[in-house]
């Protein structure tokens, strides 16, 4: 027995036990329970997060702030990159930072020295989550004077898997990969590298001590995401920072002029 509900549906059509949705055709299951009632739902599992993300995006657009979601595995150097980035682009670009970690305020303490307003989100209060969800970003954004910001950077939790799945209402995404991590990370974590708009290859000052194959790393990135801008740099020595800063400030300027 089929029970129709009033819920929105994404399922395209139904015929004799088969569902056609998009390009795939499949059987629900081979044996159907006797006397079972099937309720069609057809909803996105993360629709609540997506709704929060939409609200965030509208709010950020209304305030005229560009939001960058920065993601990477733990220890790739996101915080150092941000410290050096903030120093170079402030005060011309008014910046704020939301930094996510499972525990500690170490990163927020480091970033606050730049003079930018910084909010630390610790996800242990939310069950030690491995990513920042949209409602968490919405709450963290309450602590900022968004009208007086040009750029809000979200330093996501170190993880190449989960943060890619959760839209937070950002306008741009950057993935940071350090040269100590192995060239094939983009092929191993394609979702993350597909989703991001630019990639930073950090810690190039260590190249003389490593067997890292830069051409192979760039090849893997472009295999997963052809034409994605890649910035080779060392946040520590500040070598190669120019192109990265140009890209970032151009994103902010373009979003400003689009308004």
């Amino acid at each position: 027995m089929i029970y129709e509900t009033e819920l929105p549906k994404t399922v395209a059509s139904r015929s004799s036990g088969m569902i056609c949705a998009g390009v795939s055709v499949f059987l629900f299951k081979t044996v159907k329970e006797e006397n079972a009632m099937e309720v069609e739902i057809g909803r996105k599992v993360l629709e609540t997060n997506d709704a929060h993300a939409r609200q965030n995006r509208e709010r950020f657009a209304a305030a005229g702030v560009f939001v960058l979601n920065m993601m990477s595995s733990p220890g790739s150097g996101k915080t150092t990159l941000l410290e050096k980035t903030l120093v170079r682009i402030m005060p011309e670009i008014r910046c704020g930072v939301i930094v996510g970690d499972i525990c500690t305020t170490n990163d927020a303490d480091r970033l606050a020295r730049s003079g930018a307003p910084v909010t630390q989100v610790n996800t242990d209060a939310f069950g030690g989550d491995c990513h920042l969800a949209a409602h968490v970003i919405g709450r963290a954004a309450d602590g900022f004077d968004l009208e007086n910001l040009d750029l809000l950077i979200v330093e996501n939790i170190g993880n190449l898997v989960c943060p890619a799945e959760f839209d937070i209402g950002e306008n741009g995404r950057t993935v940071v990969l350090s040269v100590t991590e192995g060239e094939d990370k983009p092929a191993k974590y394609p979702h993350m590298f597909r989703k991001c708009d630019s990639a930073v290859l950090n810690k190039i000052d260590l190249l003389p001590y490593l067997d890292f194959d830069m051409a192979a790393a760039e090849g893997f990135i472009h295999q997963v995401h052809p034409d994605m801008p890649i910035f080779q740099l060392s946040a520590k020595t500040e070598a190669g920072m120019g192109p990265w800063l140009n890209w970032l400030t151009t994103q902010v300027a373009e979003s400003r002029s689009a308004r």
């Binding site: 994404t10 399922v11 569902i19 949705a21 998009g22 390009v23 795939s24 629900f28 159907k32 329970e33 006397n35 079972a36 009632m37 099937e38 309720v39 069609e40 739902i41 057809g42 909803r43 996105k44 599992v45 993360l46 799945e165 394609p190 597909r194 472009h222 295999q223 997963v224 995401h225 052809p226 034409d227």
Partner: peptide, 27 residues
């Protein structure tokens, strides 16, 4: 994610990101 025919990098993912709840069955 490069076109298998013409090697273009301008490729759109049309399926593979789904995370949908399709239906439930109740006794």
């Amino acid at each position: 994610f490069r076109c298998k025919e013409c090697s273009s990098g301008s490729v759109e993912v049309i399926s593979g990101r789904e995370l949908d709840i399709i239906s439930i069955e109740i006794a």
